[in-house]
């Protein structure tokens, strides 16, 4: 994937993710609606590639207002990833040097890889995760399961032990997937399925769309590094 296609793909996927998020806020209080109608309009402009440079800048400024409005992210990690992608895109548009544009976009790709690797690392060093106990806790009493009957998974320790190790190994091994295009595509498919499962079981739908929006950056970086030889 070349640089221009990766940037345009990121814009489209980010715009779609922002449209989805913004639409959800239109059911909220009046002050939220006012902010998110603006983000919805800007995201549609981003989707169609209209005045992209200025639209990205306006979205960053609006992002700061949203951070102030909620005194932090509204939905934790998904909001942070959205802002990171947006800031990287904006930087790409405002930095004149192509080399620095590539460095900024590579930083996004690096953060995508780290988002899996660090999550895996903090789990593998935690005995509760290694024993499956932590995932049992997630199902048993955390605020995440979307229904009460999903809490019954907490009574299946062997299954949860297997699921814990599957998650840990996937997250830790994800960086190795960049070694070839095929393994990376395979890794990204698994990643998307992982986010899909989190969305279905824990209602974390925003993570699915926003993480997918960062995928073009790693596809580009993989091509950029391994096509040099």
């Amino acid at each position: 994937m070349n640089f221009d296609i990766a940037i345009r793909s990121t814009e489209i996927l980010l715009a779609l993710a922002f449209i989805q998020q913004s639409a959800e806020h239109l059911t909220g209080p009046r002050d939220e609606k006012i902010i998110f109608i603006q983000r919805l309009v800007l995201s549609v402009l981003l989707l169609f590639g209209i005045q992209t440079q200025w639209v990205c800048l306006a979205l960053v400024i609006l992002g700061l207002f949203i951070l102030k409005r909620f005194q932090g992210p509204y939905n934790g990690g998904s909001d942070r990833m959205g802002l990171l992608i947006l800031c990287c895109l904006s930087a790409v548009y405002f930095i004149p040097s192509f080399q620095w544009q590539e460095i900024v976009f590579a930083y996004l790709a690096l953060q995508l890889v780290l988002s899996y690797f660090i999550s895996g690392w903090v789990k593998i060093i935690n005995p509760d995760w290694r024993s499956g106990r932590a995932l049992q806790d997630v199902f048993q009493f955390s605020a995440y399961p979307v229904s009460e009957n999903l809490r019954a998974f907490a009574k299946r320790p062997h299954l949860l032990w297997g699921m814990s190790w599957a998650v840990i190994l996937f997250e830790l091994l994800f960086p190795l997937s960049v070694l070839s295009k095929d393994t990376l595509i395979c890794g990204l498919v698994i990643a998307a399925l992982f986010h899909l499962a989190n969305a279905c079981l824990f209602g974390l739908n925003r993570f699915l769309w926003i993480w997918i929006a960062a995928f073009p950056s790693i596809l580009w970086l993989q091509h950029r590094i391994f096509s040099l030889g």
Binding site: Q71, R80, L83, L84, C87, Q111, S115, A134, V138, F141
Partner: peptide
């Protein structure tokens, strides 16, 4: 508030702490 988005920690589900209701 923006800084953690630019330099994220990505420590998802590190510890399953007590959950509020």
């Amino acid at each position: 508030l923006l800084l953690p988005a630019l330099i994220p920690s990505w420590r998802f589900f590190e510890v399953i702490a007590a959950s509020p209701r």
